[in-house]
Amino acid sequence: MVLQGTLVNTIAIIFGGMIGAFLPNIPLKMRDTVMQGLGLAVIIQGILMGLKTENFLLVILSLVLGGVLGEILKIDDKLDQLGHWLERKLGGSKKGNISNAFVTATLVYTIGAMAILGSLNSGLNLDHRLLYLKAMLDGFSAIIFASTLGFGVVFSAVPVLIYQGMIALLAKYIHLLFSQELLDTMIVEITATGGILIIAIAINILELKKINVANMLPAIIIAPIGVILVQWISKLF
């Protein structure tokens, strides 16, 4: 089922938020240890995805051009501005109230590369493993958020369901535009490019270095375009 990964992610947030709402503040050391373990697991997932490529040069070019485009468009800055705008509109300035908990959790769970990549993976080839990993991350962070911000974290599951569900459903019907052979190749390179971005997300989780993953998201679009160009050029020669 296309929405299976998104549903698991949604349920994890709901249960995590409900558990956290009845727990006192969780020790920082415990939180860091668990997040580090999950970060290492995300690295392995990214490596497995990255190794699927059949044209590593294309992946490199996609990342380079995608990064340049992302920096020009300032995607990371715009997402940050969107987050601040939502906080102002929904009144998320008072620590501990429902709107603050809702806005904070929603931004963490939806505005990020893993939400987009996981949903695309679910829609394109019914591979939900990335969203399962995200569900683990979101579920645990929901416990943390709810223990400090309150029950409003649970309501963030709704925009996650809508946002990721829409991406997955739209991705499912992309096969109507391309032949199955071309689509299979596109999926392979999208997966490989996404895998490298997933490794970058894991590096952020482990706090090894801050990487602006959002600015690299155009690489996910450039990779399939590159596949089409490669096939077109190969037919000419």
Rank of each mutant, 00 (worst) to 15 (best):
L182P: 01
T148K: 14
G17H: 07
S141Q: 06
L65S: 12
M136T: 02
L149D: 08
I11T: 11
T10K: 00
K172P: 00
V158A: 11
G50M: 11
D77E: 12
W232I: 14
T191M: 11
I19N: 01
T191Y: 05
L82K: 05
N97V: 11
N97K: 06
P224L: 13
K78F: 13
L40C: 14
K172T: 13
L236S: 11
I116L: 15
I43D: 04
I116F: 09
G123K: 07
G37D: 09
I174K: 02
L79Y: 09
I111M: 14
L124E: 07
F178T: 07
D76R: 04
A105V: 03
S234D: 15
P159N: 06
E87Q: 15
D184E: 13
M136N: 00
S62L: 10
I98F: 14
A157S: 14
M216R: 05
G112L: 04
A202V: 09
A168D: 03
N121L: 11
K94G: 00
V59T: 12
F178H: 07
L40K: 10
I44H: 08
L48H: 10
G152M: 04
F151A: 13
I43P: 08
V154M: 02
N9R: 03
K52L: 12
A219Q: 08
L236Q: 12
L170Q: 04
M30E: 09
I19S: 06
Q36D: 14
N125L: 05
I211C: 02
I14E: 00
G165C: 06
G20M: 10
G16D: 12
G91E: 06
L69D: 06
A171S: 15
L131R: 02
Q164W: 03
M216L: 15
V230R: 11
A101L: 08
L63V: 01
S179L: 04
K29Y: 10
Q81P: 00
